[in-house]
Design a protein around this nucleic acid. Structure first.
Lengths: 224, 224
DNA sequence: CTGATTGTCAAGTGTTCGCTTGAATAGTAT
DNA sequence: ATACTATTCAAGCGAACACTTGACAATCAG
């Protein structure tokens, strides 16, 4: 009659989902996957782990129901199992930042000082896009993530290529750079660099996953 | 320069919050605390752990920033550090139930069969309360949780006392029982029992924490 | 077929976790 | 002060975790 053993098993089930995110590297993996599917090798490079170890972490995430897979040739692509996972991951970030001062401090350390770069919310950007404002939306994420889905009309220049491709950007127009989200260091670094070169640049406060989570449209997202 | 070490530390920080909930007993503790503060001893009894062990779990939750304490005499009362924690806990439950069939099955096993008891949403109940409908709202949680905050006008009869106090309930009126939430077995059991005795009874689909999280008012909540 | 590439599995190792037991601390009552 | 209570701390032990290494499986090119 609603016995103790069942209750324990139930809460152990909940705990197992939390446990999947109880490792920093797995949290990183989920964060990367918020921006689109990835092969094991690609994820391993992103989180600086060995292939075997990355594969093991992915099995754990898969068993917890957080990610799903697809095979294409010799590659196995991992993706988040549902948009709910993004939501959950965002909730976790939020609570960590509000309830732990040390985490909030690390966030600031990680992103660097962006005091002089103006921020734009996704709602503001969406308004300006709809009103055909002449601005350049710049996606500084790796090409793969841009291909998996980007803000309509956005230009792709991965941060690694920015120095050598900077001439593609017009000095006359307003530039809005974005990347993976509030915790991604790509756009902050890009805007600092562009600003130092005299470009008119702002930064989108959120990233592509937040844009999608808010129900705004993405371009270039192809379901195979 | 947004280096690797800082990023790892940051994500380890996120992971540490998830780790706090990566144990079934700690998840149970958070669930109980959603209904109000508790002493260590009281929590230990609730989750069937030794006092020392419960205290250790509570230290972990505290270090993760999820709970806070207050001392009163020799007692130490633990409470959730912020309403965000309830939100996070609810998100975790949601994802576990949708992405894991085994968890959803355990939920059904745990709550028992309630096919013939009608459910009411908190919005529906709130409407009926405002329109002064003649219904009895029955809180079957332990007295302590009722005292910490209950739906306005609710009657407190803890499930353990229901058999001997059943005569306090009128057979003529509609009864709506509630407890801690969708995962609490108290109200389902109470409604089954009342129904078998011929009472007109429905069950609130949500519980007191959900009611509060939705911004609806509670009675009897006293901040000391 | 062979060989190359991507990913998974299995075994081993040091570390952390979850629990128990018993001692220590903080506050209250006598 | 002493006794008592609620809680925390410290030590210890078996289990689980995170990583490495090397073997195995799956797919494709030739």
């Amino acid at each position: 009659m609603s016995n103790r053993a069942t209750k324990e098993a139930l809460f152990d089930g909940f705990a197992q989902v939390a446990k999947a995110l109880s490792n920093g590297r797995r949290a990183e993996i989920v964060d990367v996957l918020s921006n689109g599917e990835r092969s094991v090798e690609s994820l391993a490079a992103e989180v600086h782990l060995s292939i075997a170890n990355t594969s093991q972490h992915l099995q754990i995430l898969k068993n917890a129901g957080l990610v799903a897979t697809r095979r294409h040739g010799t590659f196995v692509y991992y993706r988040l199992a549902s948009p709910d996972v993004v939501e959950f991951w965002r909730a976790l970030q939020g609570i960590a930042r509000t309830s732990r001062a040390d985490v909030e401090r690390l966030v600031r350390d990680y992103l660097g000082d962006n005091g002089d770069v103006e921020e734009l919310t996704k709602e503001e950007l969406w308004q300006r896009l709809k009103s055909k404002d002449k601005l350049v939306v710049l996606d500084v994420r790796p090409r793969q993530e841009y291909d998996a889905g980007h803000i309509p009309g956005a230009v792709s220049i991965p941060l690694d290529d920015l120095k050598k491709r900077i001439k593609e950007l017009p000095k006359s127009k307003q530039i809005v750079a974005y990347c993976r989200g509030p915790l991604c260091a790509l756009a902050p670094e890009a805007t600092r660099y562009l600003k130092s070169k005299g470009y008119r640049v702002k930064r989108l406060a959120e990233g592509a996953p937040d844009w999608a989570a808010a129900g705004l449209p993405l371009d270039g997202h192809v379901e195979e």
